[in-house]
Amino acid sequence: METQIFEIISHGGDARAYAYEALEAAKDEDFHKVEELLEKSQEELDLAHNTQTKLIQSEINGDKLEINLLVIHAQDQLMTAISEKNLIEQMVKLYKKISEK
């Protein structure tokens, strides 16, 4: 279980990093790079979410998941990464509009 929790943390962190790189690329008006980085971010989120889903299904099937600080940290990292990516996507749209003017 610890390996899966670390996967969630790692993929969530990578997703955030790619999203922030995309924001920097948007500032430079490199929108092709933005799209590539946001795709990578989403791929990392998908990996983290798939691992999270496996843990949830395991618990539903009767395997008891020990709730500890590490599990809470993993959930926090994933939810934060999702929220920040969504916000960055909106910011990128603003950069595109500004760039078009």
Rank of each mutant, 00 (worst) to 15 (best):
M1T: 10
E2K: 07
Q4N: 14
Q4T: 06
I5D: 01
I9N: 07
I9C: 02
S10Q: 03
G12D: 14
G13I: 06
D14P: 01
D14T: 06
D14V: 08
A15Y: 09
A15K: 04
A17K: 01
A17Y: 01
Y18V: 01
A19Y: 11
A19H: 12
A19F: 13
Y20A: 01
Y20K: 12
E21A: 15
A22S: 10
A22K: 09
E24F: 12
E24S: 14
E24G: 13
A26K: 08
K27F: 08
D30I: 01
D30S: 11
F31A: 07
H32M: 04
H32Y: 13
K33L: 11
K33H: 09
K33I: 06
E35P: 04
E35S: 14
E36L: 13
L37G: 00
L37Y: 06
L37A: 03
L38W: 03
L38M: 11
E39W: 07
E39R: 15
K40G: 08
S41I: 07
L45Y: 05
D46S: 10
D46H: 06
L47F: 08
L47Q: 09
A48N: 05
A48P: 01
A48R: 02
H49C: 04
N50W: 00
T51I: 09
T51M: 05
Q52P: 04
T53C: 12
I56W: 00
S58G: 14
E59K: 14
E59D: 13
N61K: 10
N61Y: 02
N61G: 04
G62I: 03
D63E: 15
K64F: 05
K64I: 02
L65M: 09
I67G: 00
I67S: 04
I67K: 11
N68I: 13
L69W: 11
L70I: 12
L70D: 07
V71Y: 05
I72Q: 01
Q75R: 11
Q75C: 09
L78A: 00
L78H: 00
L78E: 00
T80L: 00
A81V: 00
I82Q: 12
I82H: 02
I82A: 09
I82P: 02
S83T: 08
S83P: 00
N86Q: 09
N86P: 08
L87G: 07
L87A: 11
I88G: 05
I88W: 09
I88N: 05
I88F: 04
Q90W: 05
M91D: 12
M91Q: 12
M91I: 15
K93T: 06
L94P: 10
Y95H: 15
K96V: 01
K97A: 03
K97E: 12
I98E: 08
S99P: 02
S99I: 01
E100I: 01
K101Y: 03
K101H: 01
K101D: 04
K101T: 04
